[in-house]
């Protein structure tokens, strides 16, 4: 029961942290963010590892294989595709030559980079 209680506490607090962190992300980055959180649930591969270490029957081996294959596709694919998307967001030069419309502040503000 003690283990269950501490696991439940971890679960609930993590949910709250998730709400807090995700609520701040602008809609611009929602696709990479969804893909990035998608990669994080690939941590289930750690579950596949734990399963492998205790499997002791043919059914156990088959389930280990299935869990490992699915989880590996999730974790590797998830991180690679997220990185591919985000690399597109960061490769540009800081600011375009054309100034913003009707923005008098733009004239006297220095480029921070």
């Amino acid at each position: 029961m003690e283990a269950l209680y501490s696991n439940l506490a971890i679960f609930v607090l993590s949910l709250l942290v998730g709400v807090e962190v995700i609520g701040k992300i602008p809609s611009t980055l929602h696709t990479p963010m969804m893909s990035g959180s998608n990669a994080i649930h690939g941590v289930v591969i750690a579950g596949a590892v734990a399963t492998a270490s205790v499997a002791n029957s043919p059914l156990g081996y088959v389930l280990t294989f299935i869990a490992a294959a699915l989880a590996a596709a999730n974790v590797f694919g998830g991180y690679v595709v997220t990185d591919r998307m985000l690399q597109m967001f960061t490769r540009h030069a800081p600011a375009p030559a054309v100034t913003a419309p009707a923005a008098p502040v733009a004239a006297n503000s220095k480029d921070p980079s």
Partner: peptide, 11 residues
């Protein structure tokens, strides 16, 4: 698994 799963669930 619990922490990462909860984070993604909330997200």
């Amino acid at each position: 698994l619990i922490i990462a799963g909860a984070l993604v669930g909330a997200a």
